[in-house]
């Protein structure tokens, strides 16, 4: 990973993180004693059955949810409250309906009070990188789902965050667009060297994108296993899909996820 920023230590550190949500009637444990260290430049994908607390895990890293117990650090600083050094992409594009694509991307700059000219230049770079050229002024409802998600990705990358958190970003897209977006995200990750944590339901997506795949169990969410993906850093979608190493890992994951779901 030559593109990784020359930073010592961990990008994200979690030790013994437990999250309980209590309502009047019951108490649910969303995450149970989760420990995970992520190095700068890594692309970690998290797979697990629905409701295993994967999204909660991302929100904890972002500082949007406070863990009931355990320690979380981002870029070697303890996480207290919402973190600014991240980019966040949700399953829904969550764009502002009244703004064109470019203005939606620039929301990031306006909210942060970034330098206007610099942000505009960066936005144009990202628009070109993600193939949004020509759609700068298009309103969200005029864009397809894949295009909307590209805009959301550009918005998340505008301030060049050292850490990018993605919560099933391509879950709502059709299979073809999804593959395309996977290939693009892989390229963007190589070019920017950002640390990425991506939550997904798709085993293929997890293996193709990840340098490491974390498998979680159903509620309460625990890490059952972590795989290092033995694939080259530079990946081609078609090649990876026919690679025997991909097959092996995907089969392992499928088996593991099957049992993880069945046991609960």
């Amino acid at each position: 990973m030559t593109a990784a920023p020359a930073r010592a230590g961990t990008a994200i550190g979690m030790s013994g993180v437990t999250v309980r949500f209590s309502s009047r009637r019951s108490q649910t444990t969303a995450l149970d004693d989760v420990s995970l260290d992520i190095q700068p430049g890594e692309f970690v994908t998290i797979v697990g059955p629905s409701g295993c607390g994967k999204s909660t895990l991302l929100k904890i890293v972002a500082g949007l949810v406070q863990p009931t117990s355990g320690e979380v650090s981002l870029l070697e600083r303890p996480v207290r409250g919402p973190q600014k050094q991240i980019g966040f992409v949700f399953q829904k594009a969550a764009l502002l309906e009244w703004r064109g694509a470019r203005a939606n991307i620039l929301l990031q700059a306006e909210m942060r009070g970034m330098d206007r000219a610099q942000a505009a230049r960066r936005a144009d770079e990202l628009i070109e990188m993600t193939g949004l050229t020509g759609f700068e002024k298009a309103l969200p409802h005029e864009l397809s789902g894949g295009m909307q998600q590209r805009v959301a990705l550009c918005r998340a990358l505008l301030h060049a965050p050292p850490v990018l958190l993605m919560d099933e970003p391509f879950g709502a897209l059709d299979a073809l667009t999804r593959e395309q977006m996977n290939a693009e995200l892989h390229r963007i990750w190589r070019e920017t060297g950002t640390t990425v944590v991506l939550v997904t339901h798709s085993i293929a997506e997890a293996v193709f994108l990840g340098t490491r795949v974390v498998v979680m169990s159903a509620r309460p969410g625990r890490i059952i296993r972590t795989f290092t993906v033995e694939l080259p850093t530079h990946r081609d979608y078609a090649q990876v899909m026919s690679d025997p190493r991909f097959d092996r890992l995907a089969t392992d994951l499928r088996g593991l996820l099957g049992s993880a779901a069945a046991n609960h």
């Binding site: 949007l64 600014k84 829904k92 969550a94 909210m111």
Partner: peptide, 12 residues
């Protein structure tokens, strides 16, 4: 959208 508000929080 609550996700937009979450997003705004991470934008500082």
């Amino acid at each position: 959208d609550p996700e937009l508000l979450d997003l705004a929080a991470t934008m500082g």
